[in-house]
């Protein structure tokens, strides 16, 4: 009898809870997605009159036609991709000796990379502004690429190191016996073998750079404004005719990363878990 009850009740509870979590997770996204494809009048009405007949992508079209939003998306893409590439290259170069070689003060390196992950961006933002001004890099892609790379590298190094650690030493030894130099073994064997981990790390760096806000807000003014900053400006400005436009911009800001996460979710889950292993 108890077993019977358990078998009957268990799926009900499981699905009810799972349903709650799915709603909790999806509702905020779904709501602005809805807003982004409906005229404002529909959801401002009490009660809201959402209608399938009114669904339109014109607010997306309108925002993309606005040069500053399109430019912000392009800026974010350039910055995030460059950050990702730099993080992978520098990260792999640094993670390899940490994982494989005898290095003087290796523990010092590892501690430093952990400590640098803890530094809140708020501490750095004022000096960074002054340094970038000194370097005449304010409002350039490069300034944001440098800052994001510096900030993400400790995470990236740590993730890559953990992935490299899982590769048997013998594999690299085999590559060297076969005629690879150490660097050759890194690029021809270690990185391809750590493939899924490298993909996860790359996505992590890309998303980290794409989603960053504070540095973007302070270090960019006109030409290098990333989409997150553009969106926050739109939200607080009253110079737009229609909230659907803001909602559409919000969607544009998350669509690339959400797509990445959905396509590569397996890698990402592993990468995230790996990133917090000390």
């Amino acid at each position: 009898m108890r077993q019977f009850l358990y078998d009957r009740v268990r799926p009900i509870i499981l699905y009810a809870l799972a349903g709650f979590f799915v709603i909790w997770t999806v509702a905020p996204v779904l709501w602005i997605a809805t807003m982004s494809v409906q005229p404002e009048i529909n959801y401002v009405s009490v009660p809201p009159k959402l209608s399938l007949a009114d669904v339109s992508l014109r607010w997306y079209g309108e925002m993309l036609a606005q040069t500053d939003v399109a430019a912000a998306l392009q800026n974010s893409l350039i910055i995030a991709l460059s950050t990702m590439v730099l993080c992978l290259v520098f990260g792999a170069l640094a993670a390899y000796p940490l994982s494989r070689l005898q290095l003087p003060r290796k523990n010092w390196f590892l501690t430093a990379s952990i400590v640098s992950r803890m530094i809140p961006s708020m501490v750095l933002i004022i000096p960074m502004f002054l340094i970038m001004r000194q370097l005449r890099l304010l409002d350039t892609h490069l300034s944001l690429i440098i800052v994001y790379t510096t900030f993400l590298l400790p995470y990236v190094i740590w993730m890559l190191k953990n992935f490299f650690d899982q590769i048997p030493y013998a594999l690299e030894a085999a590559a060297r016996m076969d005629g690879c130099t150490r660097l050759g073994a890194l690029f021809r064997v270690m990185i391809p073998v750590a493939g899924p981990g490298v993909v996860a790390t790359a996505v992590f760096a890309f998303i980290g750079a794409w989603n960053e806000f504070l540095f973007g807000l302070i270090l960019s003014t006109r030409f290098a404004v990333p989409i997150t900053v553009k969106l926050s400006a739109l939200v607080s400005s009253t110079f737009h005719s229609d909230t659907s436009l803001v909602a559409a911009t919000g969607m544009l800001a998350i669509i690339p990363v959400v797509a990445l996460v959905f396509v590569l979710n397996r890698y990402i889950v592993r990468g995230l878990v790996e990133g917090v292993k000390y």
């Binding site: 979590f21 806000f213 939200v235 959400v258 959905f262």
Partner: peptide, 27 residues
């Protein structure tokens, strides 16, 4: 498992916007 990853991918700034619109006084 895939669905619940969603908030992780969303930029904090955008999640601020989303919750603002969830609780908005008129919409």
């Amino acid at each position: 498992r895939v669905f619940i990853l969603l908030p992780w991918a969303v930029a904090p700034v955008v999640s601020g916007v989303m919750w603002r619109y969830m609780f908005h006084q008129s919409y």
